[in-house]
Amino acid sequence: MNAFQILGISLTGCFALLTVLGVARRRLRPVPGLAWALLWVAAAVAIARPELTVIVAQSLGIVRGADLIFYLAILGMFVGFFLVYVRLRRLDEGLTQVVRRLAIAEARHRIEAGGGEPAAREGESAAD
C-alpha cells in the first residue's frame, strides 16, 4: 500500500465515520446519509484495489478504470449542480414569500396609523 492509498483510505474512512455520526445525531436524514456512506466506502475500495475499477469499467464498455471514475465525477458534479439549483429556487420562492408578507404587513400598518390613506396626500402638485 502506497502513501496515497494510506492517506486516501484514511480520509474516506473519516468522512464515512462523520456521515454515520451525522445520521446517528439526526443531522443527516437516513437515506442521504446511507448514500453518502456508500459513496465513501466505494471511494475507499477504489483507492485500495484500483484493479476493481478496471473490471467494473470494462463491464460497462469503458477501457480504463480512471475513465470510469472521471465520468462518474462529471456526472456527480452535474447532479450536484442540479440539486443546488433546486435548493436555490426553493430559497428564492421562500424569500419572495417573506418579502411579500412583510411588504403587505407594513403597508397595512401604515394605513392603520393613518399614513397611507389617499386622504394623506400632500396634494396633486407635489414636486417629484
Partner: peptide
Amino acid sequence: ARAGAEVVRHAV
C-alpha cells in the same frame, strides 16, 4: 406616496 398612491414596498 406623495402623489397619493397606496404604496406597498418590497424590501429587496
